[in-house]
Write a protein that binds this DNA or RNA. Structure first.
Lengths: 331, 331
DNA sequence: TGAGGTTGTTAGAGCGCTCTAATCGGGGAA
DNA sequence: TTCCCCGATTAGAGCGCTCTAACAACCTCA
């Protein structure tokens, strides 16, 4: 059975389609009597407006698209919370999608979002080529989270990865570490600035850097550690993110090394995973909820307020010391 | 600048709107000459069809809605993977939404999904009242994951929570436990059958049950443990799910109890969280990816094949023994 | 030669809604 | 009473697309 339309509600309430439309949009210029009749009819029929017919007719969109690069990473769930809250408050519907950390799937996901003709799109940690991003930006306001861009039509929300890595390295150095390795995020978004920050900090302390290629996953953290064991493990590891760190810790313990007694580990993100008591991961905090809110706000400003110049939010990361870092053991 | 429409493409290619429509849908009954002209024009303009205008006109939908009760729980990410794969393969676009484990927000989320007029909706672990579900089911094919329903218009995909709990209790009893408490999932989906299974198993073994109310979160696991400490902690705990178990373990350790030496803990779901080496949670496995695929398939069968009788998938859970369970200590 | 098929193309209506402009029905002022 | 005004209501067009039915143009066959 087909869903009831505005026409059905109008017929039942004994009014015109236009009046039902006004009631549904909360117009003040409707008499109390009619409003009640319409609402009752709508309720009885189980009517809810057809969002897409609405946006087609009104030539506006009340949809924001969100592409999440990895639904498995709790980090994004927390960013989405912030986005969702803001979008909801502004009367926008969120359409979420996932790109599975693969450029090809992300491209599909982006095309999918565009086909809804959303008012704006947030790309959370995209690994898409820049060309795909600028093509999409030609027709729709775009905000990137955890990825930078120089396009003037694209807003960005990032934490300062260089600073975050430096905080972590400085902390480890202050504990006495000299052999500090970095598992990077590979092609993942924001892995470059974090790596750069690590390299710069190591140079500043006069220490030899050691980088292994990784990915923002637990499995990649474990794999990277297996590489790091030869010829000799470092005394500290700066992981690509929390997920990666947890995988690294698992692999270290599997190799008979204890954390933090033998090896210190620092994560990145400060998700709930890091806060778990028996993970207790020292990590670099990103204000996840705030980042989501800023992303939503950036889109809303373009859509509602007509802002045209790009917003560039660069947030200050913060080190959270827990129990996976300690002074290195005397060798 | 507004996105180009089918009209723009038609004008540029010197053909009618209908012909462009045919080309866009890959109709075989278009001459090669025209097809090329249309595709060229579309490409030059950067045209892609307006999905919603299309579904409005064709009275069909190629969208599946997905309401995820909790984006923070990795369990759902894995179910979504399965759903996504199947939906994508069938040419359906996924619209994901989150309900934040609150009936009120879930209701909003469901309304949001319905406003896209999707071909079907999957509710993942909904805590909505049954009335809201049957109201939605009146107009749209619905599949519930981790929640049962007797509505003939609603498909369900569940693991057998009674069996899962029994597996866990039997395991603990075989290790020698007699004081086995259960933290339940409160109002969460599937908490009732798991509780029932626990109670039945305890009765079968002639053991006194002990249930504390919980929720499917880490915080609730910790809170429940604090309750369980008085007057004396049990020797084993069957938690509501993995997240809950991890919170419970944290709280036990905070109270100076060691897991599994002093207290054994069993989770539920077998997410990657449980598999982490230094969590190593004994847990009940649910085939998450398969559940997602079954959910998608159920919807597709209703939509494409016109199946009308309800699909009731009840999957067999499996116990995965790791390192959070052991024989109880002699008191 | 003309009836009947085929193939490729198009006009026009209509999907569920919003928007504009017009209309209706009371008051209140003159 | 008449006129005007103002708030409440509605008819009708149109958003971007698909679908139906019709229509040319050409072919085939008796």
């Amino acid at each position: 059975m087909p869903r009831p339309t505005i026409q059905d509600v109008a017929a039942r309430a004994g009014v015109s389609r236009a009046l039902v439309s006004l009631v549904m949009r909360g117009s003040p210029k409707v008499s109390e009597r009619r409003r009640e009749a319409v609402l009752r009819a709508a309720d009885e029929l189980g009517y809810s407006p057809h969002l897409m017919a609405r946006s087609l007719a009104s030539r506006t969109s009340h949809v924001l698209g969100v592409m999440v690069s990895d639904l498995h990473n709790p980090f994004w769930a927390e960013v989405v919370d912030g986005l969702d809250a803001r979008a909801r408050a502004a009367g926008f519907e969120l359409v979420i999608n996932t790109g599975g950390r693969s450029p090809a799937r992300e491209r599909q996901a982006l095309t999918g979002l565009l086909s809804f003709r959303p008012a704006g799109i947030a790309l959370l940690g995209p690994v898409l080529p820049a060309a795909a991003i600028s093509a999409a930006a030609a027709h729709t306001p775009l905000v990137l989270v955890s990825r930078s861009s120089r396009l003037s039509t694209v807003d960005t929300v990032n934490d300062d990865g260089r600073v975050g890595s430096a905080l972590a390295v400085d902390h480890l150095v202050s504990l006495g570490h000299k052999e500090i390795a970095h598992i990077d995020g590979g092609n993942g978004s924001q892995s470059a600035p974090r790596r750069t920050g690590y390299l710069a900090a190591m140079r500043r302390h006069g220490l030899p850097p050691r980088v292994v290629r990784g990915e923002y996953t637990e499995a990649a953290g474990a794999a990277a550690v297996r590489q790091l064991l030869e010829p000799a493990p470092p005394t500290a590891v700066l992981a690509a993110n929390d997920l990666n760190a947890v995988g690294a810790i698992s692999a270290l313990e599997a190799a008979g090394l204890s954390v933090p007694r033998d090896v210190s580990v620092v994560g990145y993100d400060n998700t709930w995973l890091a806060a778990l008591r028996h993970v207790a991961l020292t990590t670099v905090d990103q204000p996840r909820d705030e980042m989501g809110q800023l992303a939503a706000t950036a889109l809303l400003q373009r859509v509602r307020d007509g802002r045209a110049d790009p917003a560039r939010h660069l947030l200050a990361p913060r080190l959270v010391v827990r129990r996976t870092t300690a002074a290195p053991r005397r060798r």
